[in-house]
Protein backbone atom coordinates (compact mmCIF):
# COMPACT_ATOMS: atom_id res chain seq x y z
CA UNK A 1 0.00 0.00 0.00
CA UNK A 2 1.03 3.60 -0.47
CA UNK A 3 2.41 5.28 2.66
CA UNK A 4 2.44 8.99 3.43
CA UNK A 5 5.79 9.39 5.16
CA UNK A 6 6.36 13.13 5.50
CA UNK A 7 5.14 16.64 4.88
CA UNK A 8 7.16 19.63 3.75
CA UNK A 9 6.18 23.27 4.08
CA UNK A 10 8.10 25.57 1.80
CA UNK A 11 7.99 29.05 0.28
CA UNK A 12 8.13 29.12 -3.51
CA UNK A 13 9.65 32.57 -4.13
CA UNK A 14 10.40 32.90 -7.88
CA UNK A 15 13.69 34.71 -7.15
CA UNK A 16 15.01 31.52 -5.47
CA UNK A 17 14.53 29.66 -8.75
CA UNK A 18 16.14 32.47 -10.71
CA UNK A 19 19.13 32.52 -8.32
CA UNK A 20 19.63 28.77 -8.88
CA UNK A 21 19.12 29.03 -12.64
CA UNK A 22 21.67 31.85 -12.87
CA UNK A 23 24.13 30.11 -10.54
CA UNK A 24 24.36 33.00 -8.07
CA UNK A 25 23.43 31.14 -4.87
CA UNK A 26 26.96 31.73 -3.52
CA UNK A 27 26.45 35.49 -3.51
CA UNK A 28 26.25 37.05 -0.02
CA UNK A 29 22.61 38.01 -0.57
CA UNK A 30 21.61 34.38 -1.15
CA UNK A 31 23.93 32.39 1.15
CA UNK A 32 21.74 32.58 4.29
CA UNK A 33 18.62 31.58 2.32
CA UNK A 34 20.24 28.51 0.79
CA UNK A 35 22.13 27.38 3.92
CA UNK A 36 18.81 26.35 5.36
CA UNK A 37 18.17 23.96 2.47
CA UNK A 38 21.37 21.93 2.86
CA UNK A 39 19.84 19.64 5.47
CA UNK A 40 16.69 19.29 3.36
CA UNK A 41 18.55 18.09 0.27
CA UNK A 42 20.43 15.47 2.24
CA UNK A 43 17.21 14.42 3.98
CA UNK A 44 15.49 14.05 0.58
CA UNK A 45 18.31 11.74 -0.59
CA UNK A 46 18.02 9.64 2.57
CA UNK A 47 14.23 9.42 2.43
CA UNK A 48 13.77 9.26 -1.31
CA UNK A 49 10.07 9.59 -2.16
CA UNK A 50 8.47 7.79 -5.11
CA UNK A 51 5.82 10.48 -5.48
CA UNK A 52 5.34 14.02 -4.17
CA UNK A 53 1.79 15.31 -3.83
CA UNK A 54 2.58 18.98 -4.38
CA UNK A 55 0.14 21.70 -3.31
CA UNK A 56 0.90 25.04 -4.95
CA UNK A 57 -0.77 27.91 -6.72
CA UNK A 58 -0.59 29.19 -10.24
CA UNK A 59 0.32 32.89 -10.59
CA UNK A 60 -1.80 33.77 -13.63
CA UNK A 61 0.34 31.55 -15.83
CA UNK A 62 -1.55 28.37 -16.71
CA UNK A 63 -4.83 30.01 -15.69
CA UNK A 64 -5.81 33.53 -16.65
CA UNK A 65 -8.78 35.52 -15.36
CA UNK A 66 -11.19 33.60 -17.58
CA UNK A 67 -11.14 30.44 -15.44
CA UNK A 68 -10.39 30.27 -11.72
CA UNK A 69 -10.78 26.78 -10.24
CA UNK A 70 -10.52 26.64 -6.45
CA UNK A 71 -8.89 23.18 -6.42
CA UNK A 72 -7.44 21.77 -9.66
CA UNK A 73 -5.86 18.30 -9.54
CA UNK A 74 -3.25 17.41 -12.15
CA UNK A 75 -3.96 14.05 -13.81
CA UNK A 76 -1.55 14.39 -16.76
CA UNK A 77 1.44 12.26 -17.75
CA UNK A 78 3.72 15.30 -17.67
CA UNK A 79 3.72 18.98 -16.82
CA UNK A 80 5.92 21.39 -18.70
CA UNK A 81 7.51 24.35 -16.92
CA UNK A 82 5.69 27.44 -18.19
CA UNK A 83 7.09 30.57 -19.76
CA UNK A 84 6.28 33.24 -17.18
CA UNK A 85 7.53 36.06 -19.34
CA UNK A 86 11.30 35.43 -19.22
CA UNK A 87 11.34 31.95 -20.82
CA UNK A 88 10.60 28.60 -19.14
CA UNK A 89 12.89 27.67 -16.23
CA UNK A 90 15.73 25.39 -17.41
CA UNK A 91 14.58 22.45 -15.29
CA UNK A 92 13.30 19.00 -16.31
CA UNK A 93 9.73 18.35 -17.36
CA UNK A 94 7.75 17.23 -14.30
CA UNK A 95 6.45 13.66 -14.69
CA UNK A 96 3.09 12.72 -13.21
CA UNK A 97 1.89 9.47 -11.63
CA UNK A 98 -1.30 9.19 -13.64
CA UNK A 99 -2.77 6.12 -11.97
CA UNK A 100 -2.34 7.65 -8.53
CA UNK A 101 -3.83 10.94 -9.78
CA UNK A 102 -6.89 9.11 -11.10
CA UNK A 103 -7.28 7.21 -7.87
CA UNK A 104 -7.04 10.37 -5.77
CA UNK A 105 -9.49 12.21 -8.05
CA UNK A 106 -12.09 9.48 -7.70
CA UNK A 107 -11.59 8.97 -3.98
CA UNK A 108 -11.55 12.66 -3.03
CA UNK A 109 -14.57 13.63 -5.15
CA UNK A 110 -16.64 10.81 -3.65
CA UNK A 111 -15.39 12.15 -0.30
CA UNK A 112 -17.30 15.33 -1.28
CA UNK A 113 -14.48 17.60 -2.43
CA UNK A 114 -15.43 18.81 -5.91
CA UNK A 115 -12.08 18.99 -7.66
CA UNK A 116 -11.38 20.29 -11.15
CA UNK A 117 -9.48 17.71 -13.24
CA UNK A 118 -6.54 18.94 -15.32
CA UNK A 119 -5.47 16.56 -18.08
CA UNK A 120 -3.14 19.18 -19.50
CA UNK A 121 -1.44 21.83 -17.43
CA UNK A 122 1.74 23.86 -17.48
CA UNK A 123 3.35 24.54 -14.12
CA UNK A 124 4.96 27.76 -12.96
CA UNK A 125 7.48 28.65 -10.24
CA UNK A 126 4.90 27.74 -7.59
CA UNK A 127 5.62 24.09 -8.35
CA UNK A 128 9.14 24.06 -9.78
CA UNK A 129 10.81 26.22 -7.10
CA UNK A 130 9.96 23.83 -4.22
CA UNK A 131 11.30 20.96 -6.37
CA UNK A 132 14.54 22.89 -6.90
CA UNK A 133 14.79 23.80 -3.21
CA UNK A 134 14.43 20.20 -2.09
CA UNK A 135 16.42 18.45 -4.82
CA UNK A 136 19.02 21.09 -5.68
CA UNK A 137 20.15 21.76 -9.24
CA UNK A 138 18.87 19.18 -11.73
CA UNK A 139 19.92 19.57 -15.36
CA UNK A 140 17.14 20.23 -17.84
CA UNK A 141 17.85 17.06 -19.85
CA UNK A 142 17.96 14.97 -16.66
CA UNK A 143 14.95 13.68 -14.70
CA UNK A 144 13.56 14.85 -11.39
CA UNK A 145 14.23 12.10 -8.83
CA UNK A 146 10.52 11.33 -8.37
CA UNK A 147 7.02 11.65 -9.84
CA UNK A 148 4.58 14.42 -8.89
CA UNK A 149 0.83 14.77 -8.42
CA UNK A 150 0.12 18.51 -8.45
CA UNK A 151 -2.80 20.23 -6.75
CA UNK A 152 -3.26 23.82 -7.84
CA UNK A 153 -5.19 26.05 -5.39
CA UNK A 154 -6.66 29.47 -6.16
CA UNK A 155 -5.12 32.02 -3.83
CA UNK A 156 -5.08 34.92 -6.33
CA UNK A 157 -8.74 35.89 -6.35
CA UNK A 158 -10.23 36.44 -2.92
CA UNK A 159 -11.50 34.36 -1.25
CA UNK A 160 -9.25 31.32 -1.47
CA UNK A 161 -10.62 28.21 0.24
CA UNK A 162 -10.58 28.54 4.04
CA UNK A 163 -7.77 27.07 6.10
CA UNK A 164 -10.24 24.60 7.54
CA UNK A 165 -11.40 23.50 4.08
CA UNK A 166 -7.79 22.97 3.04
CA UNK A 167 -7.11 21.00 6.23
CA UNK A 168 -10.14 18.77 5.63
CA UNK A 169 -9.13 18.27 2.00
CA UNK A 170 -5.74 17.14 3.29
CA UNK A 171 -7.50 14.48 5.34
CA UNK A 172 -9.41 13.29 2.26
CA UNK A 173 -6.17 13.13 0.27
CA UNK A 174 -4.65 11.06 3.07
CA UNK A 175 -7.56 8.60 2.91
CA UNK A 176 -7.01 8.34 -0.84
CA UNK A 177 -3.28 7.70 -0.48
CA UNK A 178 -3.83 5.14 2.29
CA UNK A 179 -6.20 3.19 0.06
CA UNK A 180 -3.94 3.12 -2.99
CA UNK A 181 -2.86 -0.40 -3.82
CA UNK A 182 0.80 0.03 -4.73
CA UNK A 183 3.83 0.15 -2.49
CA UNK A 184 4.79 3.81 -2.73
CA UNK A 185 6.64 6.26 -0.51
CA UNK A 186 4.54 9.43 -0.85
CA UNK A 187 5.37 12.86 0.56
CA UNK A 188 3.15 15.91 0.56
CA UNK A 189 4.35 19.48 0.06
CA UNK A 190 2.43 22.61 1.05
CA UNK A 191 3.99 25.66 -0.56
CA UNK A 192 3.76 29.45 -0.68
CA UNK A 193 4.18 32.30 1.78
CA UNK A 194 5.34 33.23 4.24
CA UNK A 195 4.45 36.84 5.04
CA UNK A 196 4.69 39.07 1.99
CA UNK A 197 2.80 41.76 0.15
CA UNK A 198 3.64 42.52 -3.47
CA UNK A 199 1.12 45.26 -4.17
CA UNK A 200 0.34 48.93 -3.52
CA UNK A 201 1.66 51.24 -0.81
CA UNK A 202 2.06 48.52 1.84
CA UNK A 203 4.27 46.32 -0.39
CA UNK A 204 7.26 44.84 1.42
CA UNK A 205 5.35 43.94 4.59
CA UNK A 206 6.98 41.18 6.65
CA UNK A 207 5.75 39.81 9.98
CA UNK A 208 8.45 37.49 11.30
CA UNK A 209 6.88 36.96 14.74
CA UNK A 210 3.64 35.86 13.17
CA UNK A 211 5.42 33.55 10.74
CA UNK A 212 7.37 31.86 13.52
CA UNK A 213 4.19 31.26 15.49
CA UNK A 214 2.65 29.75 12.38
CA UNK A 215 5.59 27.33 12.04
CA UNK A 216 5.18 26.36 15.72
CA UNK A 217 1.49 25.69 15.15
CA UNK A 218 2.22 23.58 12.07
CA UNK A 219 4.03 21.14 14.32
CA UNK A 220 2.11 21.37 17.57
CA UNK A 221 -1.37 22.69 17.01
CA UNK A 222 -2.46 22.22 13.39
CA UNK A 223 -6.18 22.42 14.17
CA UNK A 224 -5.79 25.87 15.70
CA UNK A 225 -3.69 26.89 12.70
CA UNK A 226 -6.41 25.74 10.32
CA UNK A 227 -8.86 28.14 12.03
CA UNK A 228 -6.86 31.28 11.22
CA UNK A 229 -9.19 33.64 9.37
CA UNK A 230 -8.60 35.12 5.95
CA UNK A 231 -8.78 38.58 7.50
CA UNK A 232 -5.88 37.70 9.79
CA UNK A 233 -3.72 36.50 6.90
CA UNK A 234 -4.44 39.65 4.90
CA UNK A 235 -3.90 42.07 7.75
CA UNK A 236 -1.02 40.39 9.60
CA UNK A 237 0.94 38.71 6.80
CA UNK A 238 0.26 40.88 3.74
CA UNK A 239 -2.14 40.38 0.87
CA UNK A 240 -0.03 37.59 -0.65
CA UNK A 241 0.67 35.93 2.72
CA UNK A 242 -2.73 34.28 2.33
CA UNK A 243 -0.93 31.68 0.20
CA UNK A 244 -0.22 29.97 3.52
CA UNK A 245 -3.69 28.38 3.44
CA UNK A 246 -2.05 25.79 1.18
CA UNK A 247 0.12 24.54 4.04
CA UNK A 248 -3.02 23.25 5.77
CA UNK A 249 -3.65 20.74 2.97
CA UNK A 250 -0.21 19.32 3.72
CA UNK A 251 -0.72 19.34 7.48
CA UNK A 252 -4.22 17.88 7.28
CA UNK A 253 -2.86 14.87 5.42
CA UNK A 254 -0.35 14.07 8.19
CA UNK A 255 -0.99 12.41 11.54
CA UNK A 256 -2.09 14.62 14.44
CA UNK A 257 1.34 14.07 16.00
CA UNK A 258 4.38 14.55 13.78
CA UNK A 259 8.12 14.86 14.30
CA UNK A 260 9.65 18.16 13.22
CA UNK A 261 13.11 17.32 11.89
CA UNK A 262 14.03 20.62 10.29
CA UNK A 263 13.06 24.28 10.20
CA UNK A 264 14.42 27.29 8.37
CA UNK A 265 13.32 30.93 8.30
CA UNK A 266 14.98 33.80 6.50
CA UNK A 267 14.16 37.37 5.42
CA UNK A 268 14.34 38.43 2.64
CA UNK A 269 14.19 36.64 -0.66
CA UNK A 270 13.22 39.49 -2.95
CA UNK A 271 9.91 40.71 -1.39
CA UNK A 272 9.22 37.67 0.76
CA UNK A 273 9.93 35.84 4.02
CA UNK A 274 11.21 32.33 3.32
CA UNK A 275 9.81 29.65 5.59
CA UNK A 276 10.48 25.94 5.50
CA UNK A 277 9.66 22.97 7.73
CA UNK A 278 9.98 19.18 7.46
CA UNK A 279 7.53 17.03 9.39
CA UNK A 280 7.92 13.25 9.56
CA UNK A 281 4.84 11.13 9.84
CA UNK A 282 5.59 8.19 12.14
CA UNK A 283 3.19 5.38 12.96
Amino acid sequence: MARLTAGVGCSHVPAIGIAMDQGITEQPYWIPAFEGFEFSRKWMKDNKPDVIFLVYNDHCTAFDASCIPTFALGCAAEYHPADEGWGPRPVPVVKGHQRLSSHIAQSVILDEFDLTIMNEMEVDHGLTVPMSIMFGEVAQDDDWPCLVVPLCVNVVQYPPPTGNRCFQLGKAIRRAIDSYDEDLNVMIFGTGGMSHQLQAERAGLINADWDKRFLDMMTEDPIAASQITHEEYLRETGSEGIEMVMWHVMRGALNDKVKEVHRHYHVPASNTAVGHIILENHE
Binding site: A65, I68, V156, Q157, Y158, P159, Q197, Q199, A200, E201, R202, A203, H230, E231, L234, R235, S239
Partner: peptide, 15 residues
Protein backbone atom coordinates in the same frame (compact mmCIF):
# COMPACT_ATOMS: atom_id res chain seq x y z
CA UNK B 1 -10.42 43.77 4.94
CA UNK B 2 -11.22 47.17 3.43
CA UNK B 3 -9.63 48.99 6.37
CA UNK B 4 -6.18 47.51 5.71
CA UNK B 5 -4.00 50.42 4.58
CA UNK B 6 -2.23 50.52 1.23
CA UNK B 7 -3.87 47.31 0.03
CA UNK B 8 -6.42 46.41 -2.64
CA UNK B 9 -7.78 42.94 -1.95
CA UNK B 10 -8.52 41.34 -5.32
CA UNK B 11 -11.99 40.06 -4.51
CA UNK B 12 -14.82 38.99 -6.81
CA UNK B 13 -16.00 42.60 -7.27
CA UNK B 14 -12.54 43.83 -8.29
CA UNK B 15 -12.11 40.76 -10.48
Amino acid sequence: YEDIPGTYVFDADRS
